[in-house]
Design a protein around this nucleic acid. Sequence first.
DNA 1: AGTTAAACGAGACGGTACGTCTAGTCTTAAC
DNA 2: GTTAAGACTAGACGTACCGTCTCGTTTAACT
Lengths: 185, 185, 185, 185
Amino acid sequence: MPPDAARRSDRSRRAILVAALELVEAVGYARLTIEAVAARAGVGKQTIYRWWPAKGPLLFDAFIELVPAVPDAVITHDLVGDLVVELRDAVVELEDRRFDQVCRALVHEGRTDLVTLLLMPRRVVLEERLRVAHRIGEVRADADLEAAAELLLGALYQRWLLRSAPLTREYADSVVGLVMRALRP
Amino acid sequence: MPPDAARRSDRSRRAILVAALELVEAVGYARLTIEAVAARAGVGKQTIYRWWPAKGPLLFDAFIELVPAVPDAVITHDLVGDLVVELRDAVVELEDRRFDQVCRALVHEGRTDLVTLLLMPRRVVLEERLRVAHRIGEVRADADLEAAAELLLGALYQRWLLRSAPLTREYADSVVGLVMRALRP
Amino acid sequence: MPPDAARRSDRSRRAILVAALELVEAVGYARLTIEAVAARAGVGKQTIYRWWPAKGPLLFDAFIELVPAVPDAVITHDLVGDLVVELRDAVVELEDRRFDQVCRALVHEGRTDLVTLLLMPRRVVLEERLRVAHRIGEVRADADLEAAAELLLGALYQRWLLRSAPLTREYADSVVGLVMRALRP
Amino acid sequence: MPPDAARRSDRSRRAILVAALELVEAVGYARLTIEAVAARAGVGKQTIYRWWPAKGPLLFDAFIELVPAVPDAVITHDLVGDLVVELRDAVVELEDRRFDQVCRALVHEGRTDLVTLLLMPRRVVLEERLRVAHRIGEVRADADLEAAAELLLGALYQRWLLRSAPLTREYADSVVGLVMRALRP
DNA sequence: AGTTAAACGAGACGGTACGTCTAGTCTTAAC
DNA sequence: GTTAAGACTAGACGTACCGTCTCGTTTAACT
């Protein structure tokens, strides 16, 4: 029989998500065990296995539920400034241990769906901002805005994942500078 | 006592590396166990633990030893063409299951040193090519070549790791196009 | 609060007892679970736990209620014949899978009270028959009839429980023969 | 691969047997878990599972190894006295908590083979004593000595297993008295 | 050539965590 | 307003690997 979501104990569900998030922050994803989550949540292991197929989705839910979502970017008259703000914000997010641990793990497990849900909002915001700029001629008419947004964030994400160099705010600035050169009319 | 490399059995060493590479290709990094490698190589577990501290370095060695290195890029008079060739080559490399599995795992384990050894050569080649172009004025005098090279590859690496979209040759081309706009005088 | 027997659903009660007996016959006592009984009876587990403290008493009730009691032994003028009939009857009872499973389990759980209720009747019948024989001098005046009855049945019960040898009718006969030698004047 | 008995750690083996016996005495067979045995013995669970298929055989080995075997009965000129001594001895054995728990459990699990190994020695001794008596005419020529030995012990075993009445020394005496009446010429 | 010390194959060991199972209790939706 | 359904806590189950630790057996360098 499949579990009956209607009868689900919200108390247990929340306790599990909280415990999972606390533990992933404390010991990291790799050393986090379902047994420890169950123990800390005061919950039977089966209750976790009943509702989540694996560590990854569990932590995804924990993150989604308990960590506040990124606010929409404000759109001012300063394109470069707005992009810089947005990228710096992304850097801050990547420095959050919980986001870092959960997201890395999902990447590693190939949970593209979940990774996308975590990362996509930033792309959307970036594209929206570029589209506004595009409409008023601040950006080349034939520019591929999607590709540009991907490039902006991709630069950060690559450094973040590969740890090839520190993820500084200056780096974010320089990426914006470089890409803007390619976008300007 | 530290192990005495002089007496090391080359037969066992090679058998281990071959077994490791075959297994990582067959079952992936996560499901690969030292026990399985030892069994397949016809070797005692201790012989592996004696010479490698962990799965990661073992597979790194296996990859380095058994997979042919990428040849240096030729430098022609066609800058865009050369960059495109190099990026397409990188895509081919990322599509090799063994490279993919080993490299992803090293990324995930934070073995930045080893990852760098695997990925850096491409950056170096790219920078060299850009430097030649810079010298002859094909590229803006004030361009940050390091950043540009990182951006070019970063675009690929991010898609590769995040699996956010397919890693096509067309994508490589479009990245070169975009970045070149930022580099031209 | 204690369960209120007045409100008890007789329908559920009977369904539970029937299911329990069918299951114990089908899978044996050890593999019988309360969960399975509840499922087969179309009853909630709690309804079982409300009225029975454990598997043992439940099966005891099931047995008592649904399996016909042993009839009183007929008393003829043939003492040895009567004893033999009675012991052979006991052997038949022990070969009933339901009796065997339930009774063994109760023995193992140390439910002496319930075991006694199941086995005592045979002892009583045997003692009665011996007492008649005693009265008419067929049995030694100073014989301990209780001990004799216990010995007669004990021989069977020990073989039954220990499975040290097959429980045949011949064995029953030989036991009667041996004990009768001790009882005759 | 089957375990290699030659490399077996005697230290662990003994620690396991000791722990098992202590635990079965402390908590009884049913509540004894392999996990607890492993923990108390300071041993990995796998080391138990490697060498024993189940709780039953483990405890059998523990009992056989650590509890002194019953000495052979002395044969004096006093038949009744010798039988009484032997039966009283059996009662003492049955009162040993470890023997009781282990043996009951083996009975319940239907491990007739192991039960036989535990109980048979007493039968053999009894039969030997009766055979001596038979040879010198203390016992009827046509007596079935096997059946007599079984009856003597069966009386005890049945009371022991059924707990139908206390297992006293007086009871042992009275059983000897009754059976002897059947055996005397 | 004989000695000897290290690496070797094998695999048992103490552990950790897995994912599954059953017991017995507690909760909820529906009749 | 009782009951079926079933989710819950608890914890043992038996398995898979971990990384360490002997065992005897090669193997190769130094007498």
